[in-house]
Design a protein around this nucleic acid. Sequence first.
DNA 1: ATTGACAACCAAAACGTTTTGGGCTAGAAT
DNA 2: ATTCTAGCCCAAAACGTTTTGGTTGTCAAT
Lengths: 338, 338
Amino acid sequence: MAVTIKDIARRTGKSITTVSRALADYDDVSPATKELVRRVADEMGYTPNRLAQRLQKRRTETIGLILPTFGPRFADPFFSELLAGIGNTAASYGYDLLVSTQAPGEKELETYRQKVQGGQVDGLIVVRTRRHDKRIDYLRKADVPFAVFGRTEDALDYPFVDEDGEYGMQLMVEHLVDLGHRRIACIAPPPHLMFAHYRMLGIHKAMEKAGLALQDELLVVGDLTQRGGYQQAERLLDLSPRPSAIIACNDLMALGAMSAAQKRGLVVGRDITITGFDDIPMAEHAHPPLTTVHQPIYKIGSMVCDMLLQILSGQEPEERQVILKPKLIVRQSSGAVA
Amino acid sequence: MAVTIKDIARRTGKSITTVSRALADYDDVSPATKELVRRVADEMGYTPNRLAQRLQKRRTETIGLILPTFGPRFADPFFSELLAGIGNTAASYGYDLLVSTQAPGEKELETYRQKVQGGQVDGLIVVRTRRHDKRIDYLRKADVPFAVFGRTEDALDYPFVDEDGEYGMQLMVEHLVDLGHRRIACIAPPPHLMFAHYRMLGIHKAMEKAGLALQDELLVVGDLTQRGGYQQAERLLDLSPRPSAIIACNDLMALGAMSAAQKRGLVVGRDITITGFDDIPMAEHAHPPLTTVHQPIYKIGSMVCDMLLQILSGQEPEERQVILKPKLIVRQSSGAVA
DNA sequence: ATTGACAACCAAAACGTTTTGGGCTAGAAT
DNA sequence: ATTCTAGCCCAAAACGTTTTGGTTGTCAAT
């Protein structure tokens, strides 16, 4: 059995109270006693039982993160980097990170409820928002501290970090138009996702501004994976005339699209332009390197975690709602029209 | 404040004991009472406080996973898929997953100690083993349940799942030799990692069997990232005569190496052969698609989690030590010598 | 009438901590 | 001689559960 505070009390001849207070460095314990208690605790290899501490303190010092996994092939570099950002920040404040995997759907809210009401977490981080997000409705109603990566279409009265996808896509379209592209296609994300909305909005607006329109046949929806990008790109490449540029709404789909184009013998960046969004590490090392919009994923994870921790500590966060301005990263996958 | 069992007791006029036992479906509670208690619990929106349950039961129903993150750019598709495998399996048994991020080094063992002795987890999963792994030494000594992805050079008396990297690399070398390659280079993983050892062993053995030797100048060490693969490949490509094939010891480095080769105008699969290991989803969609060794990452996560859960439930796992036979996946990044 | 068996219930202890609300002693101030 | 203060200490309650070891009442068998 693990050594408890009681064991230390017995061994030092002090009371449980005194031991507890000595370890917590209260000043109604004499220096000598503190010294003694600490030495004995060390000798006996004492580690506080966090469960008991938490039960008593009514705070868990744990934040929850529920990852929207989709089936077995969930190799999204995006999430591992986000996780690193959140995890490292949480750890630096002594907080634990409870990660659940749960596909979006029926049981999802139940998972949130359980973590919250079961007192397993002090707060939650919500990622990949939907346009109308029941998770946020629930958390708001239940008065649970939370912070969000992304926005929703409903009242934005909660703390969030998001990147300005609309602006990012405007930059991208302007870039393509400057290169002479007119017949521009798009592989969109599933439309219920909020970031899909903003990115598409940016595309539509910028196209319109350039006197263009996104034609129906040039708009397809992909599932955000590389395979999905590949499949949807094939459909676009079958059209004639072929689009001269394909805007994929995330890097993974862009890489898939590049692969589809190259399979047909097209040289990406010359015969066809393909662009992404996110700037995952792979984008830089793709062949050709991918033109994309940068999103500081690690930093976003870190920021959103910081926000939540500030709320949990009772402060109002310095910045409650952050929208980051993205940067366009021009590489070789985009080129002038032939 | 959340609804507790006490509130239900008051409301139903029963004792705390009876309520607890009714909810747990003990048979010394009358059906009528059970019905009543359950109804009231439901009405009041009761969720058991897991902390209290755990403290009392002395099991946390939580397993720990400590991810070896290396700095901010941690976009490893490998780990997100492993995480999904572990997470989904844990969830299907009602277990929680406590994830910590902790770079290897000084503080690492302390993190393990804390989770274990603080009673935060019932068991741990160890990933990315080192040849001599202090984490395993510690867990073994501390008599903590754990399961491992990977092996070590020390006594293998613990439960693990691993892929036979030696065999996998033998398949790969044979494939290359069959294609006529003689001047074969290698981008090795950091040598303290156990999987590096096995993969390199496979390469050395198979080369020797083919009457070849891995020359010193053709052996470089990369950091497992795409950037690392790129940098090390540049060194190899500067040599003259150039190697006709480069075996990268993981897919990420292989992708980086491809990128380096392509930058020099080489056609991968014709002018130079480049291969990987892992078969991450991206490998299939690389251009050209990457010849690699398949590793069922999700399944491995799931298996190692299963093992741990079986141990925690007191059973001896059906298979305590599993070594999976890998399959060679030949795609277009490997070709016959020009 | 007593005994035994059974169904239904419950008080109290326990898990390991922190917090509350004190107590005791020695010395200083009145 | 009393009162006050400061310094150190501690018993007990509390957090929300589960488990232990009962008790009570009813009915059937003796």
